[in-house]
Design a protein around this nucleic acid. Sequence first.
RNA 1: GCUCCCUUCGUCUAGCGGUUCAGGACAUCGCCCUCUCAAGGCGGGAACACGGGUUCGAUUCCCGUAGGGAGCGCCA
Length: 512
Amino acid sequence: MILTSTARQKFLGQDLLWAQSKTANIPAMSQALTRTRFAPSPTGFLHLGNVRTALFNYLAARKFGGEFILRSEDTDAERSREEYLEALLADLSWLGLSWSAGPGHAGEPQQGSYRQSQRGTLYAEQFAKLEAGGHTYPCFCSPAELAVARKAQLAAGKPPRYLGTCRDLDGEARAERAASGRLATVRFKVGAGDSVRFQDLVRGSQRFQVADIGDFIIRRADGTPSFFFSNAVDDALMGITHVLRGEDHLSNTPRQILLLAALELPVPRYGHISMVVSDDGAPLSKRHGSTGLRELRSLGYLPLAICNHLARLGHVYEDPGFMSMEMLAKHFSLEKLGRSAARHDMAQLRHWQKEALHQFSEDDFVDWLLGKESPVREELSDLVPAKKAKEFALLVRDNVEISGDALHWAAQLCSEPMNFTAAAAEVLKAVDRSLIVAALELLDQHPDDFKALAAAVRQRTGQGGKNLFMPLRAALTGDTHGPEMARVYGFLGMPGARARLQQALALVGAGN
RNA sequence: GCUCCCUUCGUCUAGCGGUUCAGGACAUCGCCCUCUCAAGGCGGGAACACGGGUUCGAUUCCCGUAGGGAGCGCCA
């Protein structure tokens, strides 16, 4: 395809616009006009890379008082599943990313559905426009034939591009092939000898040779639109102004610009953000345990912890502190987006998790650990008596980083008989029997005052400091670290403490 | 194979030719606090991939090399 001069003018005009937008950090335009989107295909669960893309789009929209919309790219009927879509929506809203329009949203807009599988009519109109403009042709090559051609090109050291076999077929030849029952795809005619330029929001000016782009399929043999087509067309039709997407789309962008130009539809500003790789440097995949949003959620990571972590992967905030979603949006800036790939580091996420927990009030914390949303709610209720649950939660608060950690403390402090960690058993083995015996005998005199008990034991045994407290801790909690002993003692209660000391006695004195 | 993108402490990154023998955060190590852990305070170690240019002067600009990544699909 040769760009018409008006189309080219348009490009130049847009180049200018984009160049400006880069320096001005998104033009004022008409503020409310900033529309971003997240357009996943419901073929699996979200991983951190997807989530970060969604987050950036959300933050950009929110910062400029615009709209963030969701679109389900479910044109692949084979792989798309309703349950994935539902999971996606649930996970995104759990994260705190709210969208103003999307699949299943009340008040579906004038343009139609936010599921591509239901936008066939709209696509048909656009296909017709393209066909009328002479931008397309049917291609009768079979997948097998194409695969062979590709292989041959690769072997010959050539780029694997469509050869154009069906491009110049005349009407007769086409009719003949169609009559023979061969199904045709529709290809977009890409012209030669020109280049496509655009100003990438994060990578600056880009230029691709049109000659390097083969005629690509925009409609599959079954009549459904291909990604290049539906994705670009929907962005235009839905009035998307800024597309922040993965770097993997960068070299495909010229195709979409060409398409949109042929359709005379508005071209959004594109920003290609770096990829996120997992902590071992491997690319993220839909079934990568530690990088799946679902997995993190079920482990007890908090939405805001994840957002703080992700927002700083490939994006810089001057303030190194924890931020609310509002602050994340307020200080989000396209100019602060980095160009190189970022590694997801669990240690960093853990830091934000601690920060997020730190922000919690007591009630928030109790609700997080024991409430309906808690992934450990049931297991905890099996271990901790309901009436002591709240006290337990507050007791272990400083020793819990993710909800699962509470399970350890529940097991240590509530199970009967009690568990001793290896370290605690070591401590008890080395301790003098008389110390535990003394504690046992003095227990009655100090039923609810650990300090007084400790003082009494100290007086009788002559042991103090670490030598006093560590054995008592090991005996009462079965562990060598944990919450403050005075609070633990209060939680255990006198009868509980007695039972525990007696159990500990069995381990004591292995040395004497 | 071709095209494009990327390359500063272990990790995320600041840096947009000199005021930086490179700053912050996380992680790590040490000390303080302390009955333990955590938190908190103080302090330490730790990086400009390599080679050429350009320049009075390069982490910063240009060109190569190496390494990593992406795209070239009737996947998205």
